[in-house]
């Protein structure tokens, strides 16, 4: 469903010059699976997901979603995904219903089907009470629900959540994780990026640990625990990052390339 091969992204920045945001990462995610992309801030998670959603262009490598290449068939890719970003961005002067309807129409869903689909989603996400509330008057949790509804409206096979739980209170975050889990149960392929270990432990079937643009390791949680001989996932995460930094520093000291 999602195939990422040697994906590389290089940015040009005033302070750092050309810097590598993604250094040739590879991973795969299957239908009916929640694939976690775990990493600290600046690891490259958002860059990777923006490339998956065709908003950014890869510098090199291959990304295929639902069989479509992001470079050659971006329009098909966009029809195959639902993208929820971390800033819960919705239009302030549109109601929840209008916002979801707008995106539904952009996906060319016929009027009658769209209405049925929206009724179902609003019921599923318990959004009946915010149906006519404009974005400016919504709480963060409400906005996030609208974003999810907007991403689900065309019933895409792939859903991408980019740090979607950031800034949400415990209740809303919990409800969000439940929704994501239910999407997996519907057979969707879900990519879920976060820097919160507990969320990964709760819902992810497989996880890739991303740090400084590289995937340090990938697998199911039991596989990772076994490989690194560490049952505490938080400890495991810190050890991997520390080891990577130490090896990198040693390479630099030896005059080698940092990556």
């Amino acid at each position: 469903m999602i195939e990422v091969e040697k994906l590389k992204k290089v940015y040009s920045d005033l302070a750092k010059g050309e810097f590598v945001a993604l250094a040739g990462i590879s991973f795969r995610a299957q239908p009916g699976e929640i694939f976690g992309l775990l990493g600290p801030n600046g690891a490259g998670k958002t860059t990777a997901l923006r490339i998956l959603s065709t908003v950014l262009r890869p510098s090199s490598g291959l990304v295929r979603i639902n069989g479509f290449d992001v470079m050659t068939h971006p329009a098909e890719v966009r029809r195959s995904i639902g993208f929820v970003s971390n800033n819960t961005a919705i239009y302030d002067r549109m109601t929840a219903w209008e916002m979801v309807e707008y995106f539904g129409k952009l996906y060319d869903i016929p009027e009658d089907r769209l209405k049925d689909r929206m009724e179902m989603i609003f019921q599923q996400l318990a959004m009946g009470d915010i149906r006519d509330v404009p974005g400016a008057k919504m709480s963060t949790g409400m906005k996030q629900k609208v974003s999810i509804a907007r991403a689900m409206v065309h019933d895409p096979p792939v859903l991408i959540f980019d740090e979607a739980s950031v800034g949400l209170d415990v209740m809303v975050a919990r409800s969000l994780l439940k929704i994501i889990a239910s999407l997996r149960d519907e057979g969707k392929c879900v990519i879920f990026s976060t820097h919160i270990m507990r969320e990964v432990e709760r819902i992810c079937d497989r996880v890739a640990i991303l740090y400084r643009g590289c995937i340090l390791d990938e697998g199911t949680l039991p596989e990772l625990s076994e490989r690194h001989q560490q049952n505490d996932f938080e400890e495991l995460f810190f050890e991997m990052l520390s080891n990577y930094d130490r090896e990198r520093a040693e390479k630099l000291a030896a005059g080698g390339s940092p990556s």
């Binding site: 966009r78 029809r79 800033n87 919705i90 239009y91 907007r150």
Partner: peptide
């Protein structure tokens, strides 16, 4: 600034 542009760019609209 509001972050809605990214949402629109990831929609099917070219």
């Amino acid at each position: 600034e509001r972050g809605t542009l990214e949402t629109l760019l990831s929609s099917p609209a070219r």
